[in-house]
Design a protein around this nucleic acid. Structure first.
Lengths: 149, 149
DNA sequence: TTCACTATTGCCTCTAATTCTCAATAAAAC
DNA sequence: GTTTTATTGAGAATTAGAGGCAATAGTGAA
């Protein structure tokens, strides 16, 4: 799991800098309950409401950066914007089952998928950041509804 | 596998209509080599270059529709726009390993993941449309490069 | 076949998520 | 401290995709 110190170390490795903004974002995600994910705008508002204002530009930049470092997972759920959550290690690692009509999302865990992901990346010489099974489906209540698409 | 006739039948089930535009899009994807995927704009240009002009709005509308019907798969690769490919059944079904830096994508197959997807959706009463393992990683050549992010 | 109904198309405008620009600020190294 | 340059904040720019609407054309019934 990432700490402020390990984030700083990893940033420095690449010639980047630790900033209060980056720390705020990391700490915010660490305090977020498991299974909760949010988008840039929501994060911006929540930080501000805690008196920890970080500009929206900076949030966009750092969400992307931290996803590319493997600290955050970028989720493409059904809402048309990216959501982020902490990329937690093994026993917390999970996947998503999403209703393409109403967006209702269920999380589930499965160790063998994670293993497959690790093995596949390794085989190709890729450095793994995240691996998520996305199941697109129609939830029971949307199946019952006769509304189009 | 979908045919023009089965698409028409399924559309009619929901009170929708078959149109030449929808047929063109379906046929285009059926003739696309496996492993090739494209976005709305590319599809529009390619159809036009074949003398099969369909407006971009219509393409956007129908890509979405056909993805929600389970005919197409919507892929969120690294380029910032959605890509589509035919949602082929079992022996063709595959997953993606994507480099988050350069976007290089490798496809791989794995039956047990598909089985997990089917089982998970069933258990929750969801009607499965698509199930894809997305592995975000850094490819060997980007690991070697010292360029930031 | 023809008709009436309404889903769909095409064109164009609009929206909203994300990126870009750039001057000011502030980490980090010496 | 001083210097260097990555990062920030504010706002402008971009762009994938959605929305509005009049014209068109599938479909099912007569």
């Amino acid at each position: 799991m990432y700490t402020t110190t390990s984030l700083k170390a990893e940033l420095h490795e690449r010639g980047w800098r630790m900033t209060p903004q980056r720390e705020k974002i990391l700490i915010f995600f660490q305090n977020l309950p498991e299974g909760k994910h949010l988008n840039a705008e929501e994060l911006c508002e929540l930080l501000e409401s805690q008196g920890e204002k970080v500009s929206l530009s900076t949030i966009y930049r750092n969400l992307k950066l931290m996803a590319r470092m493997g600290i955050l997972r970028e989720l493409e759920l059904a809402e048309g914007h990216k959501n982020y959550e902490l990329n937690r290690p093994h026993p917390h690692h999970h996947h998503h089952l999403v209703c393409v009509r109403c967006g209702k999302t269920i999380e589930f865990k499965n160790d063998s998928i994670l293993k497959t992901g690790i093995k596949t990346a390794e085989k190709e010489g890729y450095h793994l950041l995240d691996c998520q099974l996305m199941i697109h489906a129609i939830c029971p209540s949307c199946q019952r509804s006769l509304l189009p698409a």
